[in-house]
């Protein structure tokens, strides 16, 4: 587990910076806001203890919050996503269970599995985030449209990021 540390530290800093400096500044028609930074939570190792997962979720969300002046908004959404993660992992467990030494990434479990797994987590995060942001259900459908459009772009970015990091690992 300790071997993962530098890699995840790099992931954390890198994706946070990409989010704050690049993605927060592109806005496509006001409806699409990709949030790539959650890829850090999505790809954490299987064995990570629950409390650590929640703390990571909280801190990564909070850092994005501090940069975008929205205390608590991203933090609550990423914590919710981290809470859902173990259940989603269990739901999509392959017949012979997850193998030790593997990570929940596209390289180990294939694009089909990864798309299903990340789509649910991204959906949980975006749904929570956009509804907390609006803080009411008056604009229910327009918010839902924002959730889905942003979700598509986020997943696309996550898959692209995965393709880039796949190079050094062996395929399935």
């Amino acid at each position: 587990m300790i071997n993962y540390l530098p890699r995840y530290l790099f992931n954390f800093v890198f994706f946070t910076l990409v989010q704050v400096l690049v993605l927060n500044n592109i806005q496509l028609s006001g409806f699409v806001n990709p949030y790539l930074y959650i890829i850090f939570i999505i790809t954490l190792p299987f064995e990570i203890p629950g409390w650590l997962l929640l703390l990571f979720g909280f801190s990564s969300g909070m850092i994005i919050d501090i940069f975008s002046n929205t205390p608590g908004m991203h933090a609550s959404a990423t914590v919710f996503m981290s809470f859902v993660r173990p259940y989603v992992l269990r739901l999509f467990a392959p017949r012979d269970e997850y193998q030790p030494g593997t990570l929940p990434t596209m390289g180990y479990y294939g694009i089909g599995w990864f798309l299903r797994y990340s789509a649910i987590l991204v959906f949980a995060h975006h749904l929570f985030l956009f509804f907390i942001e609006v803080f009411s259900v008056t604009h229910f459908f327009s918010t839902l449209v924002r959730v889905f459009t942003s979700m598509l772009l986020t997943i696309l970015l996550i898959v692209i990021a995965q393709l880039f990091s796949q190079g050094k690992k062996q395929g399935r």
């Binding site: 909280f58 914590v79 809470f83």
Partner: peptide, 20 residues
């Protein structure tokens, strides 16, 4: 502990949002 910790952290974040 997982669910309890989740609830605590979530309440803290939501408090931040509401205070804000």
């Amino acid at each position: 502990h997982f669910a309890i910790l989740f609830l605590i952290i979530e309440v803290v974040s939501l408090l931040l949002v509401v205070n804000y």
